[in-house]
Structures are given as C-alpha cells and as structure tokens.
Amino acid sequence: MKPLPHKIYLASKSPRRRELLRQIGVEFELLLLRDHTPRGPEVSEIVQPNERAEDYVARVTLEKAAFAQKTMWWRKLPLRPILAADTTVVLDGRILGKPANTAEAVAMMQALSGHTHQVLTHVAVLHGEQIYQTTQRSDVAFTKLSDEMIRAYCATAEPYDKAGGYGIQGQAALFIQDIAGSYSGIMGLPLFETGKLLEQAGLRIL
C-alpha cells in the first residue's frame, strides 16, 4: 500500500498562507517562484483582455502550481503534493490588484468605501497527474471611510502587498462592516476548502 504524503510544497510567498497552513497543522516546504528573471516573472499576474475575475484567479493559481511542479522535477526534489493559491478583489466586475504606490492605494480605498466587494481565492493542489481545485468567494462590506482615514491607512505599509490594497487581519478590520463567506479565504487561503482538497490528494490532516 502506498503511504500517504505527510508534507506538501507551498508555491506562495504569502506569509499569511504559511500562517494559515500552520494553524491547521499542515507541514510544508516553500517552493517559491521568482518575480525577476531575464524573461520576467515566472508566472505573470497581468490580467488578460476581457478576462473574468473567476477565470483570472484560477489561471494564475494553476500556472503557479504547474511551474512549481516543473521546478520540483528540475531540482529532483522529493515528490510531494503542491499547493498554490491566488486571491483577487473584485468591485463591480473590476479586478483590483496590488497597489503600486500611494496614489493607487488611496484610489482603491476610495472605491471600496461604502460598498460591498467580492474576494475570490482559488486554491489548487497538484499531486502527480491529478489536480484538485476550487474557488471560494466572500462578500465584504466596507463602511464609509473619511479621506483622513484613507490617507492614514495608506501611509502605513499594510496596503502594498495585498490584492485590493487592504488586509482583513490588520488595521483594515476597522473598515469592515460585514462579511459573508470565509475569513481565512479573505486572508488568502480558505481553510475549510483547502482541507478538503488536501484530503482528496491523500494528505491526512487530523
């Protein structure tokens, strides 16, 4: 009988995803993709023309997983399941990525202020030739923000490495009036869905 895998590779730079996997007791090693190569990033997060948010977040996740698997083969690493994920924020059908500067961060907060937006996180587990995947969606309602609150928040370091320009686990929690969905999914890794995918891939968690 083939033994169950007890450890996975995590194809993500996100410290929040590492924290969430540790929360549910999943052992992992990082298998990071590079943003800077002579040909550009190994996985592009540029939105393609007319690409729907659901298609975008799934495509980026699967590209991360596939490239990580190739890296595992090239480096002749032990064969293990690979977990990849991508999170995007959607407001009225428009994808809000990571703000590049203060002006973009302020504009995103102004757009989110007083409105409900969606957070989509696609998770994929690649194990051998099998892919287990799902998209989790949450609705997040922001209260109306003053210009002073927006500028004070955007003066911190928090908005600049996160889709939509905010982190629910940080000071932006002050802005969130209501959520419907998965708190951990908004952070970047929906734990219920992730656990189910890992179990499908043969990983025993509890």
Rank of each mutant, 00 (worst) to 15 (best):
M149S: 14
S138R: 01
D147W: 03
E148V: 15
I168H: 08
K162F: 10
A157S: 09
D147P: 02
T135M: 05
Y160V: 12
A163F: 04
Q136F: 03
A124T: 08
L145I: 01
A157N: 09
C154T: 13
H127T: 15
A124S: 04
E129L: 07
D139P: 02
F142M: 14
Y153H: 14
Y160W: 11
T143R: 08
A141C: 09
T135E: 09
H127L: 10
A141P: 02
S146D: 11
R137W: 04
Y166S: 12
A124D: 04
E129P: 03
E158G: 08
L126F: 09
R151F: 11
I131L: 05
Y153W: 13
Y160G: 08
E129V: 10
S146N: 05
D161K: 03
A157R: 04
F142A: 02
A152R: 07
Y153M: 13
G128H: 06
C154G: 04
A155K: 09
T143P: 00
I150Q: 02
I131C: 08
A152P: 03
Q133I: 07
D161R: 02
F142Y: 14
G128P: 05
T143W: 02
P159T: 14
Y166T: 13
Q136G: 01
Y160A: 10
S146W: 06
Y160N: 07
V140A: 01
M149W: 13
V140M: 06
Y153S: 10
A163W: 03
Q169A: 15
Q169E: 15
T143F: 01
S146K: 02
G164M: 05
R137K: 05
G128F: 05
L126W: 03
A157Q: 07
Q133H: 07
Q130G: 11
Q130I: 13
A141F: 06
E129W: 07
A163T: 09
R137E: 12
R137F: 03
L126R: 00
T134A: 01
